[in-house]
């Protein structure tokens, strides 16, 4: 008798056939498809989670291959967006589930739309700013969120369960100033820790989807190089602006042409307000009058003596070789947001 794809999970005492069906009816959004997000997405697809929304703004780069297991040299060569490359590779492993790739920057304009129709959100992000934004959005909409982060050989993981326990801000305190903390771009990161943290995130996501009594109520701190693992308690802070007072300052901070520096890339990303008025094809046609334009189905590269940027169909642009956000916004206004 031939056994099914999920047989080994169905005979696992904590899942069973009923649990497997529940996983197949579940919806998960993974934000950030780098080392953590790609691994988590892969494991959740293997587990048969029925719907995965994969969100990432970046393109696969050569430096990603050291730790981002899903991607290949061909993806780098073709400059594939991570979300799309991950969707493609995961679909080849499990064609029975639905996978949606969103090549967008997560920001105050779109985050609520992206997460409100899923059961659990998983953190694969590469920066604290977006994590704090996600924390607010999940608290506001009472969506369960699995935090995971890595740097160097260390990592952390914690379930954020709105209304039940501490949130990300209770764990990490107020958002540190940009540039006041180290990132994978400044102190590096090794592949084993990303896989360990991703495994915890995937397991916690499965437990949350199954409403398991084994859902971890503690935070986890790990270090792969120092062979260290600690589970620790975090108190919910009644004064926490997010889960204590439900003040969502980042979510409500919507500026015209939202700008973010892309760490380690000598580039700034400019995201216009999503008012539905952006006409990608018209802008690309106009750009052809001002410089060299190269296009694939995911983005357009524009270059002239003054400007060098990638423009995406959602209207955002990554402005290369600029020293600050103001210059990036000026270029954006001159060439894109006319």
């Amino acid at each position: 008798m031939q056994v099914g794809r999920y047989h080994r999970q169905e005979i696992f005492y904590a899942i069973g056939k009923e649990g497997q069906q529940k996983l197949q009816q579940s919806r998960v959004c993974v934000i950030g498809i780098g080392a953590l997000g790609a691994s988590v997405a892969n494991m959740l697809a293997q587990a048969g989670v029925g719907y995965l929304r994969l969100i990432d703004r970046d393109i696969v780069e050569l430096t990603n291959l050291q730790r981002q297991a899903l991607f290949t040299e061909a993806d780098v060569e073709q400059q594939l967006p991570k979300a799309e490359a991950a969707r493609m590779h995961i679909s080849q492993m499990n064609s029975e589930i639905e996978i949606e790739a969103k090549i967008v920057d997560v920001n105050p304009y779109n985050i609520e739309k992206l997460i409100t129709d899923v059961d659990v959100v998983v953190d694969g992000l590469d920066n604290l700013e977006t994590r704090y934004l996600l924390n607010e959005a999940c608290d506001k909409h009472k969506i369960r969120y699995v935090y995971g982060g890595v740097v160097g050989s260390g990592g952390m993981c914690m379930n954020v369960l709105p209304g039940e326990g501490p949130c990300l801000e209770c764990l990490l305190g107020p958002l540190p100033e940009e540039g006041s903390y180290d990132t994978c771009d400044t102190v590096g990161v090794i592949s084993p820790i990303t896989n360990i943290v991703a495994s915890y995130e995937a397991a916690e996501t499965m437990k949350l989807l199954l409403d398991s009594e084994s859902v971890c109520r503690q935070a986890i701190s790990l270090d792969a190089w120092d062979s260290y693992t600690e589970f620790f308690d975090v108190d919910k802070d009644p004064e926490c602006p997010v889960c204590g007072k439900h003040q969502y300052t980042r979510l409500e901070h919507r500026q015209k042409n939202y700008t973010a520096s892309l760490c380690g890339h000598d580039a700034y990303q400019v995201t216009p307000e999503d008012d539905g008025a952006f006409d990608y094809d018209a802008v690309v046609e106009r750009l052809r009058q001002s410089g060299e334009v190269k296009q694939n189905k995911f983005f357009t590269i524009f270059k002239n003596e003054e400007a060098d940027f990638k423009l995406f169909p959602d209207g955002r642009a990554i402005i290369n070789k600029v020293a600050d956000g103001d210059t990036a916004r000026e270029i954006f206004a001159k060439y894109i947001d006319q």
């Binding site: 992000l125 994590r131 740097v151």
Partner: peptide, 23 residues
């Protein structure tokens, strides 16, 4: 996790935890 204002005791082992910002 303890706040920095916590009074420490003789014999305590304290872990200094970092910020894990990457992914």
């Amino acid at each position: 996790k303890i706040p920095e204002e916590t009074v420490l005791n003789d014999g305590d082992t304290i872990k200094v935890n970092g910020k894990t910002s990457g992914g």
